[in-house]
């Protein structure tokens, strides 16, 4: 494993020998991986290799699936967040998530973003309004929706809906944003917008993104990690990993010889 990803940035979250089991099936095998603050890390690998499972370990979403069990550690802010004493609810306020399929609530555009705030106890109307605007701006959606904030969110295009979901996640003001194939259901233009957005968000947030799209990984990420059959095969600076991969599996995958 390369040490190249130890850059000037500080590590914000890291896993140590993380293993994950769905019942008897081991989906992740002793994965040690660290993520630098305000960088974009891409997780790539063939379908079923455990990318989503790994991502869900980072904010304990796997807890919601019956029969999961994990071993090893995930260290965030100096604490092992897999520990029993961790307040999962407040953890998820620090580590937000955007899902593959845009899933806006059947509410207005405004309400969709405000939801996370209200849920998190922000009641002051003008503060909510300000935070909604800020989040929509951060998600590069404000200009497109500012005149129809009270219209149903389901009336937006697929790409806009996904950016709305990003705005909704940002409203909670997380430090880390987990994205599971956020653009896989979108057309090239909408995808490009999401990619531009990711590069902007990187200024303030740490982003971990799962993608099947090699070009996308190379365009948006600083570091790339290649997973195969539940194991971390290789991790390194994106440029290096795509131009001269060390492991044969990585090379095969990125040159499209399998997967």
């Amino acid at each position: 494993m390369t040490q190249e990803n130890k850059t000037t940035h500080d590590t914000i979250i890291q896993t140590q020998d993380l293993s994950l089991f769905y019942g008897d099936f081991q989906a992740l095998h002793e994965i040690s991986l660290s993520f630098a603050q305000r960088e974009v890390t891409a997780l790539i690998g063939p379908s079923g290799c455990g990318k989503s499972s790994f991502l869900r370990c980072l904010n304990r979403m796997n807890d919601l699936t019956a029969g999961t069990r994990s071993e090893g550690e995930v260290v965030f802010e100096g604490k092992n967040i897999l520990g029993k004493k961790i307040d999962v609810v407040s953890l998820r306020r620090h580590i937000g998530m955007v899902f593959q399929k845009a899933n806006p609530f059947p509410k207005s555009i405004y309400d969709n973003v405000a939801y996370g705030l209200v849920v998190n106890g922000l009641k002051n109307r003008s503060m909510v309004a300000a935070r909604v605007e800020k989040s929509l701006k951060q998600a590069a959606l404000w200009e497109e929706v500012k005149d129809r904030l009270n219209k149903p969110a389901l009336g937006l295009s697929g790409g806009q809906q996904q950016r709305l979901c990003i705005a909704r996640a940002l409203a909670v003001e997380p430090e880390i944003l987990l994205m599971d194939e956020p653009a896989s259901a979108l057309d090239p233009i909408a995808t490009q917008k999401i990619e531009e957005l990711i590069l902007e968000l990187k200024e303030r947030y740490t982003i971990i993104i799962v993608t099947h799209n090699m070009q996308q990984a190379s365009r948006v990420s600083d570091t790339t990690a290649f997973f195969y059959m539940g194991k971390l095969i290789e991790v390194g600076r994106t440029n290096a990993l795509f131009t001269k991969p060390i492991k044969k599996e990585t090379e095969d995958y990125i040159t499209g010889r399998f997967g």
Binding site: M61, V89, R92, R93, G96, F99, N103, F105, V119, A169
Partner: peptide, 23 residues
């Protein structure tokens, strides 16, 4: 009530009580 919305509430750091009340 669709699972994705409930998952989304979970991911925003909503407590189960908040999910019940707001969703």
């Amino acid at each position: 009530v669709p699972q994705p919305w409930q998952r989304c509430f979970d991911s925003m750091g909503a407590t189960p009580e908040e999910t019940v009340w707001h969703l």
